[in-house]
Amino acid sequence: MLIALLVMSFIALALGAVLGFSALKFRVEGNPLVDKIDAILPQTQCGQCSFPGCKPYATAIAAGEADINRCPPGGEEGIRKLADLLGKEFIPFGEDTAAPKPKSVAVIDENTCIGCTLCIQACPVDAIAGAAKQMHTIIAVECTGCELCVAPCPVDCITMVPLPQTLQTWKWQYPEDAQEKKAP
């Protein structure tokens, strides 16, 4: 009886020590769910979700503090992916959320720009080149189309231009849509 008790408690202690050690040794830094959610978000860093960037929004979703339908650049496809990941039901965009727009880039009218650097400070991805009292310009490939630079411009020289379709970005249409178009 006593031996059995000793053996059992020894096993319990040993296993407890192993678990305690691995909990310290293999501890996961941060919440892995946040990274998974962040990977689905489009990284425009536009703040349309009312959070200051994609990562804070992902953190809020993971903590259950925000709905999954607050990201217009991600589109309905993005909501669907988030719903899949989190095991939630798909919900349409909320009424207070802006409607998704076609992907655009900001363009600075270089004749009007006064070189105030306000847009440079607003850009979340450092996609604007320029210096004080020098003309600014946007590095188009790095612009996420977040529109955060449009409001601060004191001379309204920044416009959002939708990206034109090129042979590189062209996609085959969904066959059923294509047929519907042909039918009438």
């Binding site: 962040d38 978000l41 489009p42 990284q43 425009t44 860093q45 960037g53 994609c54 850009c123 979340p124 991805v125 450092d126 996609a127 790095e142 996420t144």
Partner: peptide, 12 residues
């Protein structure tokens, strides 16, 4: 594109 934007935002 999203990965590039994430990287640049983190650097920002």
């Amino acid at each position: 594109a999203a990965n590039l934007a994430r990287e640049r935002h983190e650097f920002h």
